[in-house]
C-alpha cells in the first residue's frame, strides 16, 4: 500500500476536509506544488485555485480555495483557506472603512438615537413597575 499522510483543509468559518491522502496538489504562490508523504517542512501562501487531494486508491477530490496558507510537515498537510478574497488594496479599503466608521460615530452624536430609544423604553418600564407596586401597596395585597 502506498504511503499516506494526514490532510486537513480548513477555513475560518468551517472545516472543509480532513482525512488521509497519498498526494496533494495545491496552487502555491510560486506555482503549483505536489506534496507527497515525507515532504520536508514547508510554509507557502496559496493562490486562489483548486486543491486536488488524491485519496488512498487513487480517488481524486477537488476543493476550491480562494487563497490561504499551506503548512507541510512530513506526515501532515494543513491548508488554511481564506474565506474572503484577499488583496493588499482590498484590505486597505476595508481598513479605511473601519476608520471612517469610528470618526463618523464621534462626529455624529445623533447616532445615540438607539440609546435614547432604549432609555425611553426603560423609563416606561420603570414607571410601569412603580405603578404596579403602588397598586399592590394600596390594596394591601
Amino acid at each position: 500500500m502506498a504511503m499516506t499522510m494526514h490532510v486537513d483543509i480548513v477555513s475560518a468559518e468551517s472545516e472543509i476536509f480532513s482525512g488521509t491522502a497519498e498526494m496533494v496538489l495545491a496552487p502555491a504562490l510560486m506555482g503549483e506544488v505536489g506534496i507527497m508523504p515525507r515532504h520536508t517542512q514547508m510554509l507557502t501562501p496559496l493562490k486562489p485555485g483548486e486543491v486536488r487531494v488524491t485519496r488512498e486508491g487513487g480517488e481524486q477530490e477537488y476543493y476550491y480555495v480562494s487563497g490561504g496558507i499551506m503548512e507541510v510537515q512530513p506526515h501532515v498537510v494543513t491548508v488554511l483557506s481564506d474565506t474572503a478574497v484577499r488583496a493588499a488594496d482590498l484590505d486597505e479599503a476595508a481598513a479605511l472603512e473601519a476608520r471612517n466608521h469610528a470618526e463618523q460615530a464621534l462626529k455624529d452624536r445623533s447616532s445615540s438615537m438607539d440609546y435614547a430609544k432604549a432609555e425611553a423604553e426603560l423609563a416606561q418600564a420603570l414607571a410601569q413597575i412603580r405603578m404596579i407596586q403602588k397598586v399592590r401597596k394600596n390594596t394591601g395585597g
Binding site: 474572503a84 476595508a94 473601519a98
Partner: peptide, 12 residues
C-alpha cells in the same frame, strides 16, 4: 459575522 467583516478593523 464573517471574517471579511473584520479584516478592516483588525488591519487598523
Amino acid at each position: 459575522p464573517g471574517v471579511a467583516d473584520l479584516i478592516g478593523t483588525v488591519k487598523v
